[in-house]
Design a protein around this nucleic acid. Structure first.
Lengths: 238, 238
DNA sequence: ATCGTGGGATTGTTGAACAATACTTCAATC
DNA sequence: GATTGAAGTATTGTTCAACAATCCCACGAT
């Protein structure tokens, strides 16, 4: 045990990125994930193995690995011998997604008394991001900011697994907006709500923030579900 | 629209299994999952693609698809150009797992007032299963029953996504017991606690049940983390 | 209009090949 | 004696081509 060893031991922890040089399949999955979330691939679209593998110059096997990853995130659904399709959430899914969000977000906010300041600051940053997007009337960016806001709320829990789960849930929630044609103005009314919630958090009024959030989620779910059922009734060819 | 159509519309919903004839990769994943959870494959073990594919008569490509599935469940970890290994959770993971379980289970129990009777009955069934296992001094079965108990608690929330997430969390929790050598007696003291929680639930005293559960989780985490840190200190060759 | 029955297209799985990377061994060096 | 450097070896990453299994669609028979 020399002095050099001591110094090396005191070096900072390795950045997470070091562990994983990304594989081709993951890169393909990342690309497709963006396509799905951004709506370049509409819900219900079938993803042909042959065409995609030719288009992006990867083998079918690699592509299939990417499909598996995204299926696990519920962004794609895989049907035996039929192929993979972009998920097409139903109103039941919407209800389930909100149920999950209530479960994750509200306890996280309520427990925010013990959350580190940076976590609360992340919430504030997302609010600011949303307001900046509203200035520019950039609806798509507003949706993204809203996602970041709720991700930051869940992040107050300080759990890596919850963070990951929440990411999936939010990605799926975004799909819901693509299923309905009227996507992004939905977020606009909620911006002020976001700011109120952050204000409470900043004052460390966790219960107040949680109560606001609860009402927020109720209202948002209500609005989405009604819009959704109307749409489902309409597109149902009976 | 004939009378026949009417009758067909009224037929029960399709059983979930119908949608998915299982693929080979999924079957392999199912098998490996059991191996990992039951401890036939110790944490840290490397899974050689070549040997496994020869042993089980599947191609490397298929095997790799199975690996991806299990990696997503955190039962295996994949390192580029090194292979996949059975996960080896740390005490940090234990804390995170309990954080998740608190987040999922406690709200589910607290909201159990509106849960259907069958969901509460499932909790009772898991308690009975555990007591039967204790009779026979079958520690492994007791662990399984305890898993079922907590899965049933999370099931009170009535969300498909939470059910799935909880399943993963519990599978991972089971891995934790394999990391420590003294695995299954840990469950024994908690059986009576389980029964108390179910009793409160049956009386629809949701808050009381949630309070009991909260104490349960605190105690269980405390016990596991201490055992774990002792062990980590020991195996750390410094 | 409904029900079989093909043919055509797509996915499921395999096996082999080669490239890229990590591990091991051993000699050279300080 | 311990560390470094440079082989060779083993394993994974990715692609490709082939064939089997299954689904979809269109056509014709009832």
């Amino acid at each position: 045990m020399t002095a050099t060893d001591d110094l090396i031991d005191r070096l900072p922890e390795p950045p997470e990125a070091l562990a994983r040089a990304t594989s081709q399949a993951e890169r393909v999955a990342d690309m497709l994930r963006v396509f799905v979330i951004d709506g370049a691939l509409a819900p219900g679209t079938r993803l042909s193995e042959e065409r995609l593998s030719r288009k992006y110059g990867v083998s079918r096997n690699t592509l299939r690995e990417a499909f598996r990853l995204l299926s696990r995130e519920r962004l794609l659904v895989h049907q035996m011998h039929r192929g993979v399709f972009v998920s097409h959430p139903t109103s039941d899914d919407v209800r389930d997604l909100f149920s999950v969000r209530r479960t994750l977000e509200i306890p996280a906010v309520r427990g925010a008394r013990h959350a580190p300041d940076e976590a609360v600051a992340a919430v504030g940053a997302a609010v600011a991001e949303g307001e900046a997007a509203r200035e520019k009337a950039d609806w798509w960016a507003m949706g993204t900011a809203n996602m970041h806001f709720h991700r930051a709320l869940a992040g107050l829990a300080g759990s890596a697994r919850i963070d990951e789960f929440m990411n999936q849930v939010l990605a799926e929630t975004r799909l819901v907006f693509h299923v309905m044609n009227a996507p992004e103005q939905f977020h606009a009314p909620y911006l002020d709500w976001n700011r109120r919630i952050h204000l409470r958090l900043a004052e460390r009024d966790a219960d107040g923030a949680a109560a606001e959030l609860s009402r927020y989620l109720d209202a948002s779910e209500e609005q989405l579900v009604t819009a959704f059922t109307v749409m489902e009734r309409g597109s149902d060819g009976s």
